[in-house]
Amino acid sequence: MKRGLWDREIIALLLLLAMLPMVLAWLAYGGLDAAGRLAFTLITSGLWHLVFMLARAQPPSFAGAVTAIAVAMLAPADLTLWQLVLGISFGSVMAELVFGGWGRNVLNPATVTLAFLGFGFPTAPWHDFALPVAWAAIPALAIGALYGVMSWRLILGALAVLGVALAAHLPVTAALPSTAIVFALLVTDPVASAHTRAGSWLNGALFAALVTLFATQWHSAAPAQIAVSAALLTSLAAPLLDEAAIAFWLSRRRKRHG
């Protein structure tokens, strides 16, 4: 029996490939400091994968690198190494590895890490991003959608709502660069986002709507904080959106076939 290539590790590698433009742009602007952070998060995340491999015979996944990249790019600045280790450990272990590894988790481990760091150490300032890094989110999303590892429906759903917000002159412009990066790194994760067709549209739309809401009402928040909070809430709502989409699909089917 021959087999195709859409298994877990290939999808994780394609996600890494999709993130490459953003990561390279970020490293180019962040310099040694950024490279050091990335190395540190990669090692911490890798260590936990190693622990679970040895203790639970759970095969490690390249998805750990995806998590590490997202945390390195988005985590608040001025955190001590110990704080960063605590955050990554909480996110990787509690949101991913205890469920049985990537693919069995409910929330994106990077989202949980960032929420943990954001809520746990509220005085640490969030990063601002150089604009070219945010622009690099466009090829990232394009590569992901082209290979089918990110949902194009989710992307279009978010774009549609953001488009409406911009057309209505809501003050979302300042949050856009961080939103684009968070969207590409966290929200489009195929495991933690909605997986039905209608659910994907709603998932994208909900994220953009939450970003718009926070940008207009939450005045003290940094752009990255707004985007990460929206990503967390969207991720929590994804199973609900899927359930709603499946219920709608079933009701249409019942109407058609009795």
């Binding site: 859409w6 877990r8 590790e9 994780a12 693919g103 290979y147 195929p190 067709r197």
Partner: peptide, 28 residues
């Protein structure tokens, strides 16, 4: 690892959706 572990899960992707004809919520 291959013998001891539970096998890696299927990740929802466009390939999975299309290989089931797009006729059903694939992951469900």
């Amino acid at each position: 690892l291959e013998r001891a572990a539970r096998h890696a899960p299927i990740i929802p992707s466009a390939a999975l959706d299309q290989s089931l004809g797009g006729a059903v919520p694939a992951a469900a």
